[in-house]
Design a binder for these strands. Structure first.
Lengths: 344, 344
DNA sequence: ATGAAAGCGCTAACAT
DNA sequence: ATGTTAGCGCTTTCAT
């Protein structure tokens, strides 16, 4: 590594952080009075209040939230265990906003698509006594949470349901989305439509592949060689793409079951991107600056995030309420790639 | 909203969460012994240890981290105040990994490019008594942190320096990056090179615009009408683009000063993307699937994140050490758009 | 309107 | 090797 380093003068040593008691002494009042001022209790005399405020700013005092939470018995925080913080993540964004409106802080942790990490993240949230958890499940079994659930932990799954335990969930309407994609391609003259998507051991992979097969059956199109689920590595996507686009009766249009597949397909298509019609499941930033623009089935992340927090808050208020699964509509966004005609 | 809702049977009411004392009673040992087992103290007899473990799993006990932190006086957590959680954020990812390796959890909060929100997020982290903060500064003044800094809070700025207070920083080599971009375009025959970038009130905008002017001066190219800093809205980017690409002596190549500008320029260029050479500052996912592929100056996010955590840990260990600014090299990634020849 | 004291769940001296 | 006890910094009865 060849970083350049510039150094400068040091910084004074560590001073002890002021506590509420320090403030009380500085202001010459009782501890309780400082607590009252900090919590904006109106029953403090104006004179004392201002003296306490002065002491607070003089000392640079900020209350220790851990101690507050410990004493209050609530954390005012919801955990969000999502697959990735680094990728585009509109659901997390929506959760963040909705939680803030509900007066809750968000503790976001990434699961990195790893079952073990997911469990680690969720347990860490439990140890921090979050008031609820929004999870984008990776693992297939979440019964390590059954104790917490019995203890009243509000848990809401987004995108996929939890496994092994009953929990509220917010899902996209996968079947309807695949239907929209298929109809759009059929509408533009395609008869041989292919599908490349996720492993069917994954919930969304299963739902979307099943919906695709149903569409083909309903429209009387050919299924043979057109369905390629269980595809996740770039190499296998490349192979599936070759298989579906070559041979005696190649597909003229393609539906991709998730963003990763969509992007990998675009990467392999390269210059040929304009020669095969394509609809991707799930929108992503920049899909509109591709040429041709990418037609997608977009999930409504804003509504998903909002709903997740709503369910969380509702269960907090009433732990005994019935478990709910909310299905959120999806939307087809035509941008060109899905409207390409078949080669004549 | 037309969500479909499916309801199911309820869930048992809230049971009290077990404490360490409950475990001690269940196992018939003293509180201290449970604490020893939880903290893997080897001085516990094998017999008692297993009895305690059994009680822990039977009760589904998980220690309250807030109480641990309160008592230990350390939180084992670093805060990361970044501009956006929802956007691609490789630095956050790198911080996450490096922190984990150092045995630290990460509390990530987004500042949403808002000075007020930034302050809110940072203060919230302070109230949670994080052991240090990595910040991607938005605000121009951070002297509200001077008290915390004096109290020994390790603070590391990434991408831009903090304002008004001395803190460690990890910056990209903006000047070198602009130099690489300029030379690449010059090498491919361009004489009239334009620049569209951030406001010069922003640190990176200032550094990059200055470096661009220096490049033009050094190479004897024309500066007139070629420099467009202070551009941030889509409308203004569009205007700047028109200005730089039209007139009697239009630019044949362009350098864009940040991702937002790059993407907006691509959006406006549309079908003409292949007719003007372009180098963008900062890489982004999918830049390689554009046609032509986008040539970029890439920041080394992995090194930036790592270095930030290294500086944080170093200052934790020695609060009096000199303040450091580390400059991380950038890299030119040629993908086609920067290698286009000038027309004719 | 203000204060004294108990205790949230845990760790760490200090016994034994 | 195991138990007793005093707090960490705060909120909250309960007095005054």
């Amino acid at each position: 590594m060849t970083e350049r380093v510039a150094a400068s003068s040091g910084r004074s040593g560590r001073r002890k952080r002021p506590t509420m008691l320090d403030v009380a002494r500085e202001a010459g009042v009782a501890l309780r009075t400082v607590s009252r001022v900090v919590n904006e209790d109106p029953t403090v005399g104006a004179h004392l209040a201002s003296r306490v405020q002065a002491a607070i700013t003089a000392l640079g005092y900020a209350p220790d939230e851990r101690a507050q939470q410990l004493r209050r018995g609530t954390s005012g925080t919801v955990g969000a265990a999502v697959r990735n913080l680094a990728d585009a993540h509109p659901v997390l964004s929506a959760v963040d906003h909705a939680a803030r409106e509900a007066g809750l802080a968000v503790l976001a942790m990434s699961t990195e698509d790893d079952e073990h990490r997911e469990r680690e993240a969720v347990m860490s949230m439990c140890r921090r006594r979050v008031d609820g958890i929004v999870i984008e499940p990776i693992g297939t079994s979440h019964d390590y949470l059954s104790g917490e659930l019995a203890a009243g932990l509000p848990l809401v799954a987004v995108d996929r349901p939890t496994g092994g335990v009953e929990a509220d969930a917010v899902l996209s309407d996968n079947a309807a989305g695949i239907g929209m994609a298929y109809r759009q391609l059929a509408l533009h003259g395609h008869r041989r439509i292919g599908y490349i998507g996720d492993d069917e051991r994954i919930f969304t992979g299963r739902e979307r592949a099943a919906a695709f097969r149903a569409c083909v059956a309903a429209s009387g199109g050919p299924l043979d060689g057109m369905t390629h689920p269980g595809v996740f590595s770039p190499a296998r996507i490349s192979a599936a793409l070759t298989a579906v686009l070559t041979g005696p009766a190649p597909a003229t249009a393609l539906i991709t079951g998730n963003v990763e597949t969509t992007i990998e397909v675009l990467r392999h298509l390269g210059a040929d991107a304009g020669r095969v019609a394509l609809v991707g499941f799930d929108d992503f930033p920049l899909a509109d600056i591709l040429r041709p623009g990418l037609t997608v089935v977009a999930q409504n992340s804003a509504v998903i995030g909002r709903t997740a927090i709503d369910l969380l808050v509702a269960r907090s208020a009433d732990p005994a309420r019935p478990v709910q699964t909310v299905t959120v509509p999806v939307e087809l966004i035509p941008r060109g790639s899905g409207e390409l005609p078949p080669p004549d």
